[in-house]
Amino acid sequence: MPDLDSVESKTLLIAVVGPCSSGKSTLTNALKAAGYRARHPAQEHSYVANMWQRVTQPDVLVYLDVDYANMRARRPHIDGGPQRLAEQRHRLRHAREHCDFYLDTSGISAVEVETAVFTFLSTF
């Protein structure tokens, strides 16, 4: 985890994007709990390719990804088939191309996701 007393790193605005069930809400909540300014701009639901920039204008863009099997395991009551995941990834392509940090969350725990992101943020 980064130095939680670091005022400079805490002033960063962090946007977290990714397909449904990739861990965005969990990570955003953890970032906020640690004192970071974090937002989830719901880019996966928008046809505006750079909505994440327009709405959030983040200093740091974190892209979380997930495969179909893990998406289904995390939310078995929500499904649109693999084509839903493919459509969300298509909508997220601009964000993925411009992200500062990419992490595939398939098969890893929320704590492992947090550790990876906090470690990355400690470089700021």
Rank of each mutant, 00 (worst) to 15 (best):
L61M: 03
R39K: 11
L31Q: 01
V111Q: 14
D5Y: 13
Q88W: 02
T56N: 06
G81I: 11
F120N: 00
R89K: 13
P19H: 06
G107A: 08
G35N: 02
D65N: 15
V62Q: 09
E87G: 05
R54F: 14
A33M: 10
P41Q: 09
H90D: 11
H90N: 05
D65Q: 12
F120P: 00
V7K: 13
K24V: 09
M71R: 05
Q43G: 06
L103V: 11
S21W: 09
W52A: 02
D104C: 04
A38N: 06
T28N: 03
D65S: 15
C99Q: 08
L13R: 13
Y36R: 04
Y47S: 02
R37G: 01
D79C: 09
L13T: 14
E112T: 09
P19F: 07
T123I: 04
G107K: 06
H94L: 03
A95C: 05
M1H: 13
Q88D: 01
Q88R: 08
Y63P: 01
L121Y: 13
Y47L: 06
A69H: 08
W52D: 02
S122N: 05
R37N: 07
S46Y: 12
D100N: 15
G18W: 04
V17W: 02
D104N: 15
V113Q: 05
V60S: 03
K32L: 15
L4Q: 13
D3W: 05
G35V: 11
C20Q: 06
P19Y: 02
V62P: 01
S6G: 12
